[in-house]
């Protein structure tokens, strides 16, 4: 009987922990993988805006290593640009919306990585 009560309490604790914790925090390492897959073609392997696709572009993609400029953008701004594309923020249509491909959590991971790229020594 005691064992049963112990088991029931343990299960409840585990469930409560899950409910309380919610989704895990954004992760720059996961963001780095996503950046390599979805962003480097235009924004460059080093994030400086000189990707392999830019030769015929009329507008240069954003330089994510430009600390000063990137600091003027809030996480919300960056999230919006990735999720809904350049058109949604009155920028170039060449920046696509990724809402059909990436989850909100993945976009959060990307934003987290952008902060590493723009504003830390590791990013540089």
């Amino acid at each position: 009987m005691n064992n049963r009560i112990f088991l029931a309490l343990s299960s409840l604790t585990i469930l409560a922990n899950f409910a309380y914790a919610g989704s895990p925090p954004a992760d720059a390492i996961r963001g780095k993988t996503l950046y390599k897959i979805y962003c480097t073609q235009c924004h460059g392997l080093e994030g400086d805006g000189y990707g392999i696709n830019v030769a015929d572009m009329e507008v240069l993609p954003r330089d994510h290593t430009e600390t000063k400029e990137m600091k003027t953008r809030t996480d919300k701004d960056l999230f919006k640009a990735i999720k809904f594309g350049g058109k949604a923020i009155d920028k170039s249509v060449l920046m696509p919306n990724w809402d059909g491909n990436l989850s909100d959590r993945q976009i959060d991971d990307l934003v987290e990585y952008l902060r590493v790229l723009c504003c830390t020594k590791t990013g540089k």
């Binding site: 696709n53 030769a55 015929d56 249509v93 060449l94 920046m95």
Partner: peptide
């Protein structure tokens, strides 16, 4: 090229567009 932005990644001619 301009409205849909396909040329960011794709070429519509041997000498125009993205290469990824």
């Amino acid at each position: 090229n301009k409205f849909k932005g396909c040329s960011a990644c794709h070429r519509d001619a041997a000498d125009n567009g993205g290469v990824s």
